[in-house]
Structures are given as structure tokens and as C-alpha cells.
Nucleic acid binder design. Structure first.
Lengths: 231, 231
DNA sequence: AACTTTTCAGACCAAATGGTCTGTTTTAAA
DNA sequence: TTTAAAACAGACCATTTGGTCTGAAAAGTT
């Protein structure tokens, strides 16, 4: 999406003559405002994820978004607010896949599904993944509280599901948290270390074949690694 | 190691009176110089790994090392040289463990051993791991060439070992590069995402029990995941 | 002890950068 | 078409920061 797309939305979609109908007053303006804000956020994510918070200048972002620095400050009162808003948005997407963990289901289905969803995230939102990684590496100054509370409690919840699988003999004994870490690390690796992966394999998750190969390799390893012994 | 250690080495070890014997001229000076340089490197690694290249100021490093900014510039002509030197040093340690891959050996032994070595690295050099990760995430501006050449060829070499295991039926078929990526990602996760791991588990690789538990969890998953089907 | 070289510190500088101020243009609504 | 509010731009500012210059202290050598 480029700047042009945005402007087009605002001007062409609404035929130049008049507002088609009476929306709530200010609705059009609000939408345009929100759209542009959103666009800036996407651009900024792209830049932040490349150079980190400190390595990114407001001017870089403004240039990338094809607006003036001043204009950017019209939409976000300062650099931190911009950065923070992005991180918040990321968290949502990042956590969605984990909802697939439900006790009633078959471990193999759930795990396969979860791995695929996470890998899709690495493919479709690699920048978000990298920004998240940058934040964590640097000590999670912003997200620390979130990790220790929300995330922790969610994981404890999901751990119970895994534990129930173990106690029912559906999978071999394993520390549930370790299992989750294992899935996170292997899937996110392909976003965070994308450059390294590409340098060595010449490929990318955006390559469909490579994606499928990677996906099933991870799935197989984990599924087979969890099969009860002497099956 | 603190700044004090350094000075002590220079002053106390050599009894104040006189040089014990005639070393090559300038040898004492050179050693002192090298030691201090090394100390600065270690301090700088610690700071860089926390805040990244751009997020780190020379003054921060100087303060951490308890020397003046000017003094730092006496040992390193600029910020980049300092950063680069650190990265070079890291690469060496980072690659050492992979030498355990030898065809003659038993896959299980080799893999277990390799996983342990990598995990030890994550435990003992987490800062190095994080700095390396930062570099890769940001597109590996410095290391890209290295990745595409040296590293790639090393991996191709080791891949053959793994492939030979597969063709001999010692392990089930898997893409060797993928396998190596899995090991890298799972082990390095505990250094790079240390904060997250700690936030959720309350523990660390520095915790001996947690280290062993993690090590065998990864080992088991991978070993069992690679066992030939219908054993 | 004298002398030379190395090591270090404080003042200083120029560029970069986050952010503001003032005023102009654009736009939606009437 | 008019008008008030919203959107935007350029000049400007204060601070930070990588890096230099000059000279003083420290250490090694004879």
C-alpha cells in the first residue's frame, strides 16, 4: 500500500460532487484520519523493524510514508507514542494462534494447526515478528509487564491442556512450556533470522514450496517427537 | 572482571621495584594495552547487546568501563571499529560447536552433544548471542557476506554428514539444513528471548536444574523426532 | 635522573535528530 | 460559495552524540 492508495480512497471512492448521504457529522474526516494513521503505522513498522527504535529517525519514517516530518507529528505526538502503538497492534496478532489449544481436540491436529498458524504469521508479518524480537532482546522495557502477567497466565492456561494430553497418555511426558517455546522458536526463526535463512538456502517462507517443506518438517519433528514410546 | 582487576594486573603482579627480567622491549606495554582493549571489548559487548548499535552511546560504554570517552577513542578509532571487532570475536565462538559433526559418529551422540554445546553457549555467552541476533534481524549489514560464503559452505559440508545418516537409515529423512536451523533456533531462543523465558518460567539457563531440563527436552524431541518410523 | 613515548582527560566542535512555532493550504459541512 | 476547522509545510531550536585538539600525567627505558 502506498501513499497514493490512501489519497485515492479519500477522493475517488466518494464521487467528487457531494457526500452520497448524510453520515454522522465528521465521519468522513474521522475515517480519513484513521486511514492515514494506520498507513503511517504500517510504514513505521517496516522502518522500525529494520533499524530498531533508536536506529530509526522520524524523518526516515516520514520519507517512507511520503509525508513531512511535521505532518507525522500531527498524527503522533512523539516517537514513543508511535512505537508503542505499533507494539500494541502486534501483540494482538501475535497471540491469536494460541487460541487453537483446546483440550477436547486431538493433540496432533492442534499442534499441526498451531505450528502452521505460527509459521504463516512468520511469513505474513515478518516485520512484526522482528520488531517483537528486538523488543524482547533489549530487555522488553515496554512489554515486560505484559509478559509477566497476561502472557504468563495465558500460557499457564494452555499448559493445562497439554498436561491433560500427557496424563491421558496421548503424548509422551514433556514440560508444556518447553513445548511451546520449542514451537515459538522454530517458527519465528524463519522471520527473525530471515536473512540468514535466505543467505544459506536461497529461499524464503514466501516461496510456497519452501513454506510447505518447512511447515511439515517442524510438524513431523514435533509430532513424532511426542509420540508415546514403543507405540 | 572489573576495571580494578585490570589495573591490579599491571601494578601488583609485577612487584613495584623493577621488571623481573628483560622481556622483549615493549612487551609489558603491549600486554597491558591488549588487556585493556580486551576489557573494553567485553564491556562494550555487554552494552551493545542491550541497546543495539545505534541505541548505544560511546559515553555509555566509557562509563561502564570506567574510563573517559577520549580514552576509549585511544583504543578504538571509532564506534564502528569497536562494534566490528566485537562481532568478529563472536563469530569464532559461535561456530566452534559445529565441528562435532563427523560422519563416523553415531547421530544420537553427535546431536545430543551439539545441542548441549549450543545451549551452553546460550548460557555462557547470552550477550554475544543477542548481539548476533540483533545484527541478523537488522539485515546483517556487516555479516551478510560471511553468511553467504563461509557459513553457507560450512553448512553444506555438515549437511553431507546428516545426509549420510539418512541414506544409511540411521535417522528418518529430513532436510539437513532444516534440522540445523531447528537446533539453532531452539537453543538460541533461551539466550535471545531470555527475558521472555524468565518472565514466564521464572527461571534461566543459569539455573542448573532448568538448564538440564531444557537440554534434555530439546534433545529428546529432536532425537525421538528423528527415530526411524516403526522402530 | 633525565628523557621519550604512551596513556589519558577536558574543552570543544559539527552534524544529526526529536520536536515546536507560525502561518498557509485544503477540506468538509452549511 | 462561504467559512471554520483540519491538515499540512518550512523555518527554527535545543539536545545529543560521535569525534577531535591540545596538553598534561604516567610509565618505560637508558
Amino acid at each position: 500500500m502506498t501513499k497514493a492508495d490512501i489519497s485515492l480512497k479519500g477522493t475517488k471512492v466518494q464521487p467528487l460532487k457531494k457526500p452520497r448521504t448524510e453520515l454522522e457529522p465528521g465521519a468522513r474526516r474521522r475515517k480519513k484520519f484513521d486511514d492515514k494513521r494506520q498507513f503511517i503505522l504500517e510504514t513505521a513498522l517496516s522502518v522500525f523493524s529494520k533499524y530498531g527504535f533508536h536506529g530509526t529517525t522520524i524523518e526516515q519514517i516520514a520519507n517512507s510514508a511520503d509525508i513531512s516530518k511535521t505532518n507525522l507529528f500531527y498524527y503522533f505526538s512523539n516517537k514513543e507514542e508511535l512505537y508503542l502503538t505499533i507494539l500494541e497492534n502486534i501483540l494482538n496478532d501475535w497471540l491469536k494462534p494460541i487460541t487453537v489449544f483446546e483440550e477436547v481436540d486431538d493433540p496432533e491436529d492442534v499442534l499441526k494447526n498451531y505450528i502452521r498458524l505460527k509459521l504463516e504469521l512468520s511469513r505474513d508479518q515478518p516485520e512484526a515478528s522482528r520488531l517483537f524480537c528486538l523488543e524482547i532482546i533489549q530487555g522488553a522495557p515496554i512489554l515486560k509487564g505484559y509478559l509477566e502477567n497476561e502472557l504468563k497466565s495465558i500460557l499457564q492456561d494452555k499448559s493445562k491442556v497439554i498436561e491433560s494430553w500427557v496424563s491421558k497418555g496421548k503424548i509422551k511426558p514433556i514440560n508444556p512450556i518447553q513445548l511451546i517455546f520449542f514451537i515459538w522458536s522454530t517458527t519465528q526463526h524463519f522471520a527473525d533470522f530471515n536473512v540468514q535463512v535466505k543467505a544459506i538456502t536461497g529461499k524464503d517462507l514466501s516461496n510456497k514450496k519452501f513454506f510447505e517443506e518447512t511447515c511439515s518438517a517442524i510438524q513431523q519433528l514435533i509430532i513424532d517427537g511426542l509420540k508415546r514410546p514403543r507405540l
